[in-house]
């Protein structure tokens, strides 16, 4: 990686796949920094903000959303081919999103239950992470990602250095904020000990247990946490559902969740 040459404005695209649009808002929510950002990079494609030019070759492509239709499968290849750096933003692009739950169920039956003419729904039977289709250079976890994460990633890429990956458990952030542990002091089934930092321990700071929005931390011990949650009196299927939530498609959570669902069917 090399730093950006003086006078050159890197070209940036923000692409959307199957998602709620919430992660892109982290750009729009930058406030004054959005002006600064637009003076540093050129947004050539960012439909939610205005510019539309999905075909343009870019230096950085931010991808929101999971791959969930046959068209997505083709489109993500084109995005990859036209981008120097591909950065996934959020749980959908990084782990398949909440919609990846259909990978574990009979998606066809769900569609039939809801839509009058299921044949009109052109979706794949799976919702998958971008990395299962093309090479991803950087993954930003979170549901949604925060403006802080985006700024840090853009800044590092402009400097020509590898962005620092946040991989610690939420507990570390919780203690750095001197929050009283909700699991130890209140017996709440907190997912913080297996979840990646990034949110600043938002839920525990309001006395609530962590719901694992930022996906698995490095070296997560899902079995030890499972035993602990069982000890708190949480039913195995309920623990399974906590793993199979926003980041159900992330391997350690898929495994832990399925184990709990199957063991106790």
């Amino acid at each position: 990686m090399t730093p950006v040459a003086a006078g050159y404005k890197p070209q940036v695209a923000v692409h959307k796949f199957a998602s709620c649009d919430g992660c892109q808002l982290a750009f729009l929510n930058l406030g004054e920094d959005l002006l600064l950002l637009s003076s540093l990079v050129e947004f050539v494609h960012f439909a939610e903000a205005g510019p539309v030019n999905p075909e343009a070759p870019v230096d950085i492509a931010f991808v929101e959303g999971s791959i969930s239709t046959a068209k997505d499968v083709e489109r993500i290849q084109l995005v990859r081919a036209r981008s120097r750096f591909l950065v996934t933003i959020g749980a959908c692009a990084t782990a398949g999103g909440l919609q990846a739950l259909r990978n574990l169920a009979d998606g066809q039956a769900w569609i039939a239950d809801i839509y009058a003419i299921p044949a009109y729904v052109e979706s794949l039977m799976s919702s998958t992470a971008v990395a299962q289709h093309v090479k991803v250079d950087l993954e930003l976890w979170g549901c949604p990602v925060s403006s802080r994460q985006l700024v840090a990633a853009v800044r590092a890429l402009l400097f020509g250095v590898a962005p620092v990956e946040e991989r610690d458990k939420v507990c570390m952030e919780c203690k750095r904020s001197q929050i009283v542990c909700v699991m130890v002091a209140h017996g709440l089934p907190c997912m913080g000990p297996v979840t990646r930092t990034g949110c600043g321990a938002l839920c525990p700071s309001f006395g609530r247990d962590c719901y694992a929005c930022y996906g698995p931390a490095e070296n997560p011990n899902t079995q030890a946490l499972t035993r602990r949650l069982e000890g708190l009196g949480i039913a195995p299927a309920a623990i399974g559902r906590r793993f199979l939530s926003i980041n159900n498609g992330a391997a350690p959570f898929t495994e832990a969740g399925l184990r709990l669902m199957h063991d106790h069917d």
Binding site: K169, C171, M172, N219, A224
Partner: peptide, 13 residues
């Protein structure tokens, strides 16, 4: 190691 979450609560407190 089978029981520990490697969460860092012990060292933090």
């Amino acid at each position: 190691a089978g029981r520990c979450l490697a969460c860092g609560n012990c060292t933090s407190v």
